[in-house]
C-alpha cells in the first residue's frame, strides 16, 4: 500500500500548552477532545522524571478496537488510518476497554463512541490535521512511516510503552538535550 500515516511527537519542543487539545475539541463537536495532554512521572536512576505531551488515537497497525467492536464499526484505510463509523456504533464501550491508549471517547449525551480520524477530510485536501496545524512549536507532525528513518525515532518514551500486539503508529523524536525533562528531586536529596 502506498502510505502508512502516523504521528511523530517532538518531546523537546512540546510546551504542554494544550493548543492541540483545544483545536481538536473545537473542531470535532464532541464532549471530550480526542487528543489530550497527558502527564507522566517516572523514577529513573534515582531521578524523578516529569514529562508531558499529547496523544490520542495512534492508528495502530493491528488495532484492538477493530477486533473488539461487535458492530464492525471500525475499519482501516489503505493509508493506515483507522476510522470509526458512528452510524453503526451502539455505545457498548468494548472499544474503550480494548484500546490500550484510551483513544475512543464516549459521548454521554449521544450514547455513542468516536475517536480521532486524523482529520482525514483535511488530509484529502492536503491540509494538516487541526492539532498539527495549531501547534505553535511544530511538536506534532503527521508523516508517512515508510519514508522516515526508524533509527532516528523511538517507539517509546516515559509514560508511553509500545504495545507489541497493536503496534501504534506513533514515534517520538529522540531528544538531543534533556531540556524538557524537569528533574524534580535527586534521590540523595530525598
Amino acid at each position: 500500500m502506498e502510505q502508512r500515516l502516523g504521528f511523530v511527537v517532538d518531546l523537546a519542543k512540546c510546551l504542554g500548552c494544550r493548543s492541540c487539545e483545544w483545536a481538536c475539541y473545537n473542531n470535532h463537536s464532541w464532549e471530550t477532545p480526542f487528543r489530550y495532554l497527558r502527564e507522566f512521572y517516572q523514577q529513573d536512576k534515582g531521578k524523578l522524571i516529569y514529562l508531558k505531551y499529547s496523544y490520542g488515537c495512534n492508528h495502530c497497525e493491528e488495532p484492538e478496537c477493530i477486533k473488539a467492536c461487535p458492530e464492525k464499526s471500525y475499519y482501516k484505510k489503505q493509508n493506515g488510518i483507522v476510522l470509526h463509523d458512528i452510524t453503526k456504533c451502539s455505545g457498548c464501550g468494548d472499544c474503550i476497554r480494548a484500546c490500550p491508549f484510551g483513544a475512543p471517547q464516549y459521548n454521554s449525551s449521544l450514547g455513542i463512541v468516536d475517536k480521532c480520524d486524523l482529520c482525514v477530510s483535511r488530509l484529502e485536501q492536503d491540509l494538516d490535521p487541526y492539532c498539527v496545524e495549531i501547534c505553535p512549536v511544530n511538536a506534532i507532525k503527521v508523516v508517512d512511516f515508510k519514508k522516515i528513518r526508524e533509527e532516528n525515532f523511538s517507539k517509546e518514551c516515559v509514560g508511553f510503552t509500545s504495545i507489541e500486539l497493536t503496534r501504534p503508529a506513533i514515534r517520538f523524536k529522540k531528544m538531543d538535550s534533556q531540556r524538557q525533562i524537569l528533574i524534580i528531586k535527586d534521590k540523595e536529596a530525598r
Binding site: 484492538e64 490500550p100 517509546e156 510503552t161 509500545s162 504495545i163 507489541e164 500486539l165 497493536t166
Partner: peptide, 11 residues
Amino acid sequence: MRLLLSVGEYQ
C-alpha cells in the same frame, strides 16, 4: 501468551 503481548514492555 497472547494476553502477555497486550501488556506494555515496561510492565
